[in-house]
């Protein structure tokens, strides 16, 4: 019995460490490249990578929840664009920045809520509903912005993503701190709350969850609404970074977000995944991009490498989970 318990403990440790090892491997490779050795692991570069990761990371927090619950959200990137446009529009219209930010986040939440409501009411697969929403949100963003960029006056909102934050004791951009705080919060929600356990149960076997009295529809709507709120926050960060509301921003970003979750051990058939894993997935991709750029490698090399990593990560995951039955 003791041997068995040690084994399972060892296995959990390996499961936890595997994505970490991937990240360390990538860091090791780039920091041993003679060309960029001196710059790659410098604090300034790490800060910049962290700041660059914020937008994908916030999206990935919500996406992790959605994927664990057995769903998918293809509208994430469009939702980010829409929220950033709404934020810019509101600031431009003279609203106080705080209100504008709130409006941006709520827009994201509303899109997510509609996703969830449609998926549960129409009983259609999330792929279809969110694919439709991907087009709708993008279209609405362009409509609001009148197919242009919305210029907005500079406010404190634009400092959320500043690489050197104003009170210098902050060390990292406020956006990075927000990302960390929300990541911890979501990890706690998933592990220690009734809602979190219900999401896992729904993703693993929705019929069983229903039979056990889990209010599956309600939980799913909440899941998509939370994912939407994170997209809204991510949209605010996008606006903060660009200082304009651009309806054409973040095209295809939903795939980066999904990739991060999957690299981090999320299963597209539901029931598996973790916030820590997804965050590591985000950083694996961010460091790759950063390293490749510093090396002066062309874009297509990055794309190929990231493609390979996705496939490798998921196959490794399968091997790790192979059961002896």
């Amino acid at each position: 019995m003791r041997i068995v318990r040690q084994q399972t403990r060892l296995q959990t440790l390996i499961n936890l460490l595997a994505p970490f090892l991937g990240l360390i491997l990538i860091l090791a490779i780039f920091s041993s490249m003679p060309d960029i050795q001196s710059r790659f692991l410098r604090l300034a570069n790490l800060k910049s990578v962290a700041t660059q990761s914020v937008i994908v990371a916030l999206g990935a927090l919500g996406m992790t929840l959605v994927i664990i619950g057995g769903g998918i959200d293809l509208s994430a990137a469009s939702n980010i664009a829409l929220s950033s446009v709404v934020t810019a529009y509101a600031i431009n219209a003279g609203l106080p920045p705080l209100l504008a930010v709130g409006l941006g986040i709520l827009t994201g939440g509303a899109v997510g809520f509609v996703n969830g409501a449609l998926i549960t009411r129409l009983r259609l697969v999330p792929f279809i509903i969110t694919m439709g929403m991907m087009g709708i949100a993008r279209g609405v963003a362009k409509w609001i912005a009148d197919n242009q960029k919305i210029d907005a006056p500079l406010t404190w909102v634009n400092e959320l993503m500043a690489k050197s934050p104003r009170p210098s004791w902050l060390m990292l951009a406020p956006g990075v701190w927000l990302m960390i705080v929300f990541a911890v919060a979501m990890a706690v929600v998933l592990r220690y709350t009734v809602f979190g356990r219900h999401v896992f149960a729904i993703g693993s076997n929705e019929a069983a969850a229903r039979l056990c009295g889990v209010r599956t529809n309600r939980a799913k709507i909440i899941v998509y609404a939370i994912a939407g709120l994170f997209c809204g926050l991510s949209g605010v960060m996008e606006f903060s970074r660009l200082t304009v509301g651009d309806p054409t921003v973040a095209v295809g970003l939903e795939l980066d977000i999904i990739a991060a979750v999957v690299i981090g051990g999320g299963s597209l058939s539901g029931g598996e995944g973790s916030i820590l894993g997804s965050m590591i997935g985000v950083f694996i991709m961010a460091f790759l991009r950063n390293g490749c750029t510093m090396m002066g490698w062309p874009n297509y090399i990055q794309e190929i490498i990231i493609g390979v990593i996705i496939v490798a990560a998921v196959s490794l995951d399968r091997i790790r989970h192979r059961r002896p039955t």
Binding site: R197, F200, A201, S204, N205, A208, A209, G271, E272
Partner: peptide, 12 residues
């Protein structure tokens, strides 16, 4: 199909 969430733990 319906009785158990097979991938989850006994506790769950």
């Amino acid at each position: 199909g319906e009785g158990l969430a097979l991938a989850r733990s006994l506790t769950d």
